[in-house]
Lab assay of single mutants.
Amino acid sequence: IRCIGVSNRDFVEGMSGGTWVDVVLEHGGCVTVMAQDKPTVDIELVTTTVSNMAEVRSYCYEASISDMASDSRCPTQGEAYLDKQSDTQYVCKRTLVDRGWGNGCGLFGKGSLVTCAKFTCSKKMTGKSIQPENLEYRIMLSVHGSQHSGMIVNDTGYETDENRAKVEVTPNSPRAEATLGGFGSLGLDCEPRTGLDFSDLYYLTMNNKHWLVHKEWFHDIPLPWHAGADTGTPHWNNKEALVEFKDAHAKRQTVVVLGSQEGAVHTALAGALEAEMDGAKGKLFSGHLKCRLKMDKLRLKGVSYSLCTAAFTFTKVPAETLHGTVTVEVQYAGTDGPCKIPVQMAVDMQTLTPVGRLITANPVITESTENSKMMLELDPPFGDSYIVIGVGDKKITHHWHRSGSTIGKAFEATVRGAKRMAVLGDTAWDFGSVGGVFNSLGKGIHQIFGAAFKSLFGGMSWFSQILIGTLLVWLGLNTKNGSISLTCLALGGVMIFLSTAVSA
């Protein structure tokens, strides 16, 4: 259960009878995928790494000078000259100064003066180019299975845990398959586009800190620079940016070097996208990844198990997540596992009318040892309800109150669905055939309105939902006002479609 501690969480529900669903994975976010007769899966884009970055340009932001020398000439005696002028490691300046009897010249006039100092770069920052084909995306998957609280967001041991898996995709191999043991396998067909235009970005490294910066900004930095990788004795261009020549006297000129420019660069980098280094690879934390999940090989585990009949206890007080759902960790005293956990939410304890829904599909106890633990997640209705676990006299209950409203949740879900469709863009549509167009249209309606429909009408039977949709269509056909007619027709059509397409 990876997503319960992530604030940016998206719930995606598969269409009834569908074998695939489109998701948008982004750094700092987590996606929970639910479908009829399929286990619930949490998917998170953990890291995006980039390798084989080529150094484009380096800037010196802290330097020192040494070996200063000057040469001067009297008027009419030609130009002052130093051998160091031809050495690229030196920074030199030529000027004219007033000369006369007082400073060793027989004539009054302008004399030539040249001053040089050896330039040494102490600290530099480097910009590297990123090729999209060198990106690698690491995705962690977790099935809502027989897990306890100690396994949440624990990325170790996934090789031997059938509840978890790690997959890596690249532009050259965008397809992967996550093996989930008894739950089958989940196929991923990803489109490795981060949403960032790397043709316009460089990877900047300064003092063990890293950013993504725009090329134009990078090339306009007014500091000494050299092109390409460091060859040991780089040729620094624009050395004068960190060196200041003071007022010249008759035979000498003082040279000083400016202080470190790291603070000024940090100020200019305010708002830039931060990154990290992992050995020789860069780690990015921006952008998104679009994936199509193929769920035809994914299956529920323990459908044929019998119900657990022994007593359950709450190991922890049920807690609310950031998303309005409830996490419950229970301990089973029996030894008759594997068995299914009898769990439901009810409005009252007399009729036990089921409300809400299970995020953890078909929760089971897989071990036959005593005191096995299991964590599950529920989506309670707004208002008061009861969490009921167990059967008969051994069942345990917990009162729950959820604040908020169904309308607010439906609106929030619609906005999130619209954002998801905007990110998917043209990849969500198939114009290759008439059937493809209608299929894409259905998927689009489901992406945007599916979660809201589930919130508003999830407790009704599909037949009642179709009746309401048919009534809206009838009202649309018999209303003389054009805008009201079109609105009723659209709402009725969407409702009829979703009542037959969205899983219960």
Rank of each mutant, 00 (worst) to 15 (best):
G5T: 01
G5R: 05
V6H: 01
V6F: 11
R9N: 06
D10N: 07
V12F: 06
V12W: 10
G14L: 01
M15F: 15
S16R: 07
G17T: 01
G18N: 01
G18V: 00
V23M: 12
G29C: 15
C30R: 07
V31T: 15
V33H: 05
A35C: 12
D37R: 14
P39Q: 01
I43P: 00
E44M: 12
V46T: 15
T49E: 01
V50M: 09
V50L: 07
V50I: 07
N52V: 02
M53N: 04
E55L: 12
S58F: 05
S58N: 14
Y61T: 14
A63L: 04
A63P: 01
M68I: 15
A69F: 04
R73E: 10
R73K: 15
R73F: 08
C74Q: 09
P75S: 12
T76S: 15
Q77D: 06
Q77S: 08
G78H: 03
G78P: 00
L82E: 05
D83A: 15
Q85Y: 04
S86Q: 15
D87V: 05
Q89T: 05
Y90K: 10
V91W: 06
C105S: 05
L107Y: 06
L107D: 05
G109W: 10
G111K: 06
S112Y: 04
S112G: 11
V114G: 03
C116Y: 13
A117G: 15
T120E: 12
M125S: 01
K128E: 13
Q131W: 15
E133S: 03
N134K: 09
E136R: 00
I139E: 04
M140S: 10
M140N: 14
V143Q: 06
Q147A: 02
H148N: 11
V153S: 12
V153P: 10
V153I: 14
V153K: 05
N154C: 03
N154Q: 12
Y158F: 07
Y158L: 15
Y158A: 11
D161G: 13
N163Y: 12
A165T: 03
T170V: 03
S173P: 11
R175A: 07
A176G: 15
A176V: 07
A178G: 01
G182I: 03
L186Q: 05
L188P: 08
C190G: 10
E191D: 12
T194H: 12
G195S: 15
G195I: 10
F198E: 05
S199K: 01
D200G: 14
Y202C: 13
N208C: 00
K209M: 08
W211F: 13
L212R: 02
V213T: 05
H214P: 02
K215A: 10
K215R: 14
K215S: 05
E216I: 05
F218R: 02
I221A: 02
L223H: 09
G228S: 03
G228M: 08
A229P: 15
G232A: 11
T233L: 14
P234G: 13
K239R: 15
L242E: 06
A250K: 08
K251E: 15
K251P: 01
Q253L: 02
T254L: 12
S260M: 11
Q261Y: 12
V265K: 13
V265N: 12
A268I: 11
L269C: 11
G271I: 10
L273I: 12
L273M: 15
E274A: 07
E276R: 00
D278Y: 00
K281G: 02
F285P: 08
S286Y: 03
G287H: 00
L289C: 04
K297L: 00
K297G: 03
L298G: 00
L307R: 14
A310V: 01
A311V: 04
T313P: 00
T315W: 00
T315Q: 02
K316L: 00
V317A: 11
P318W: 08
E320V: 14
T321S: 07
T321R: 06
H323P: 04
G324W: 09
G324V: 04
G324E: 12
T325C: 10
V326Y: 04
V328H: 06
E329K: 04
T335I: 13
T335C: 13
P338G: 03
P338F: 07
I341C: 09
M345I: 15
D348L: 00
D348F: 00
D348Y: 02
T351Y: 14
T353M: 12
V355R: 01
G356I: 04
T360G: 02
P363H: 00
P363S: 07
V364N: 02
V364G: 01
T369V: 15
M375R: 00
L376A: 01
E377L: 01
L378H: 09
P380Y: 12
F382S: 08
G383D: 07
D384W: 12
D384P: 05
S385H: 12
Y386V: 14
I389R: 04
V391T: 00
G392L: 07
K395C: 08
H399M: 12
H399P: 14
W400D: 11
G404C: 04
S405N: 08
S405T: 15
T406V: 14
G408V: 00
A410Q: 07
E412D: 06
E412V: 14
A413T: 15
R420V: 03
L424W: 09
L424Y: 05
D426W: 13
D430Q: 08
F431H: 03
G432C: 06
G435N: 15
G444V: 14
H446F: 12
Q447M: 15
A452G: 07
F453E: 11
S455E: 13
S455P: 12
F463D: 08
F463R: 01
S464P: 10
Q465C: 04
T470W: 00
W474C: 11
L475I: 08
L475Q: 11
L475C: 10
N478A: 02
T479V: 07
G482P: 12
S485D: 03
L486M: 07
L489S: 06
A490Y: 13
L491V: 15
G492I: 06
L498V: 01
L498M: 12
S499M: 10
S503D: 11
